[in-house]
Design a protein around this nucleic acid. Sequence first.
DNA 1: AAAAAAAGCTACCAATTAGTAAAAGGTTGT
DNA 2: ACAACCTTTTACTAATTGGTAGCTTTTTTT
Lengths: 206, 206
Amino acid sequence: MSIFSKLSFKDQAFKLREQAVLDATTKLLASKGFDLMTMDDVAGEAGISKPSLYKHFKSKEELATEVMIRLLDGALAFLEAQDGALSARARLAGLLEWALRVRLEGGLPFLPSSSPQVREMLTKSLRYVSRVYKLHKLLAGIVDAAKQAGELRADLPTDVLLYAYYSRTCDPAVDYMQLYGRYSTEQIVAHMLAMTFDGMAGSGQH
Amino acid sequence: MSIFSKLSFKDQAFKLREQAVLDATTKLLASKGFDLMTMDDVAGEAGISKPSLYKHFKSKEELATEVMIRLLDGALAFLEAQDGALSARARLAGLLEWALRVRLEGGLPFLPSSSPQVREMLTKSLRYVSRVYKLHKLLAGIVDAAKQAGELRADLPTDVLLYAYYSRTCDPAVDYMQLYGRYSTEQIVAHMLAMTFDGMAGSGQH
DNA sequence: AAAAAAAGCTACCAATTAGTAAAAGGTTGT
DNA sequence: ACAACCTTTTACTAATTGGTAGCTTTTTTT
C-alpha cells in the first residue's frame, strides 16, 4: 500500500497542478489571446516556474490545444447531461446559454476563430479534431430535429445554421454589451438568445 | 509653376505609395491580424523597404490605426451615398452587405474586436474614435427609425441591436461558410443577411 | 551633364520570448 | 540521518521583430 498511496498521491498532486495550469491558461487565453500570452504569464498565474510548466506540457501549442480540448469535453458533458425530454431548440438554447455564462466568467478562449495559424495548430491535433467532429455531428442532429419540428427555419442549410450558432459563443457583441452597455450577465444572455434565434427583426414568440 | 508642379508631383507620388502601403497593410491585417503582421511583411507586400515605410508611418500602431480610419471613412461614404428614399432596414442591410463584400475580398481587418490591447491602441487615436462615434450615431438613428417603422424589434435596446449588427461584419461564420461550406460570395451574403435579421428561427418575410 | 533629392539596402540595436541546462533547495519515504 | 526525487531559481540560447543609422544607387530636376 505504501507504493500505491505514494504513487497515487504524487499523481494527485501532479494532476492538481496540471489543472491549475490549465485554469491559468484558460484565463489568459480568454483575456490576451494566444499570441500575446507568454509562458512566463502562465507560469506566474499558475504559481509555478516555467521549467516546471514544461514538465507538464512540452510546448505552448500543446498547452493551448489541451485547454481547448478540456473545453470541448465540458460542452460534450453538458450535452450528455441534458434532459432528454427537452425540445431540440431548448437543447440548443441551453448549450449556448452555458457557453455564454462560461465566457462571461472569463473562461472561454475562442482560438479557432482567432487566426489561420492558430486554427492550423489546432487541426493538427487529432484529439482536438475528433472532439470537434463529435460535437458537430451531435449538434447537426439536434438542428435537423429542430428543423423537422418547425422550431428552426428550414430554408437555410444545416451547416450554415450551425456556423452561425458556433459564432454566437464568441460574438464580440457580448464584449460590447459588457464593456459599453453595462448590462448584467442575465441581460446579456437573454439578449444573445433573443438575437440568435429571432434576429434583429424579431417576431418569434417561443 | 515649376515649383508648383514639382511639389504636387512629389506629393502625388508620395500619396500613391502611401495608398499602396495602406492596401498592403489592410490585406495583411485581414489575413494575419495585428500581432502576427510584421513591418517587414508590410514593406515586402507594398514593394518598398522598411526604412521607406517608416517615412510614411512612424510606428506599427499608427499604420494600423490609419488603415482602420480609412475603412471607417469608406463606410461613412457608403452611407452618405445611399439612396435617401430607402427604408431604414434596407439601409442597414445595404451597409452590411457592403461590409461583407469588402471582407470576402480580403479587405476587412477587425482589429477592435481582436484584443483589449489593440482596442486600447485604437481608442487612443482621436481621429479613429471620432469616426466611430459619428458612424455609431448615424446608425443609431437609422435603427431607431427602423424600430419606429416596425422593421426592427422594439423589445431590445438600440445599442444591443447595434452591437449585434457590428458583430455580423466580423462573424466567423463567414469564414466557416467560405472554408468548410464552399459557398459562393452571393450565398454567404444572403445567408448572413437572413441570419442577421430573422435569426435561426426564421419567420421574417421581408 | 551636373546637382540634389529621394529611395534602397545592409547592417545593426534593443527588447521580447519560447524553450533549456544545471545547480540549489525542499520534501518525502526509508 | 540518508537518499532519491521533485521543484525552483538563475542564467542562458536562439530566433523574432520593432525601429534606426548610414552609406549607396537611382531618379529627377535644373
